[in-house]
Amino acid sequence: MSVLSAKLRLRRRGWFALWAAPLPVWFALFFLGPMLLLIAMSFWSVQNYRLTPDFSLSAWSYVLSLDFLWSSFWRSYGLSLLSAVLVSLLAFPASYAMAFLISPARRLTFLGLALAPFFTSYLVRIYSLQVFLGEGGVLPQMFHSIGLSGASLLNSYTALFLGHATLTLPVVLVLQTLALGNVDRTEMSAAVNLGARPLQVLRHIILPAARPGLSLGVLFAFLLSYAEFVSATYLGGGVFQTLPILLTDLIRGGQQWPRAAVVSLLMMAVLLLTSLVTVAWAYRQKGN
């Protein structure tokens, strides 16, 4: 029990609340509120084209019984996972260069340059890619001039992957570079001192030590790709019916709110599960 007077305690609480309260209040109203509404809505029903609060499982049973939902679900998952792994592999040499071959002072500049595109007009970058890859675009023209087929590269997995890379590369680069940069140089020296050759140092010291950061890179690339619908629509050309596309279609196609809510919640559940598994694996320690 505190011996403080009530007045003093009240004054301190007020000062504390002034700083601590605004964000939780705003997020409770405008973030948790909408998310909880989404959960509630998945149990509502549509009667005479009107959305009615209800406790009905019809949207759930309808969505879960759709075959094309499951196929687009697995396709989304597989494509995003593939993209995430490929982007990570693509980024690794660059991250390695930034972490080990560039002086720490310049590293920050490179990291800044790598991260900046994340905040700049993703849509326009996708449009540029469309122009690059499309019929008569820069890349097909170049291929044509060296005697290859000059056909459009759009509506292919390559195009989709480039779209995903455009979105996720900055984040993956930063996470990987920070992970590699934090590898203890003394451990590496110790390994060399004990006779490890460069490739063995990479395999037995650098990669295990950087594992959490590298796995987080894959995870974030996956999360972003999985939730993405612009590349899938305009580069993949709708060839790949992914969950986010399904979702936007459901909403634009009419009053299918409960079904859209169910699909959203399924997406969230999958993301949450994947994140938990990845994080658990990334931070797993050897031995107890």
Partner: peptide, 23 residues
């Protein structure tokens, strides 16, 4: 060798900045 890593670095920056420059 160092040039391998640096090529990777260049490639990544081309992918990131080519769309911006082309616009």
């Amino acid at each position: 060798p160092a040039w391998v890593w640096f090529t990777g670095l260049m490639l990544v920056f081309v992918i990131l900045y080519a769309p911006i420059l082309s616009a």
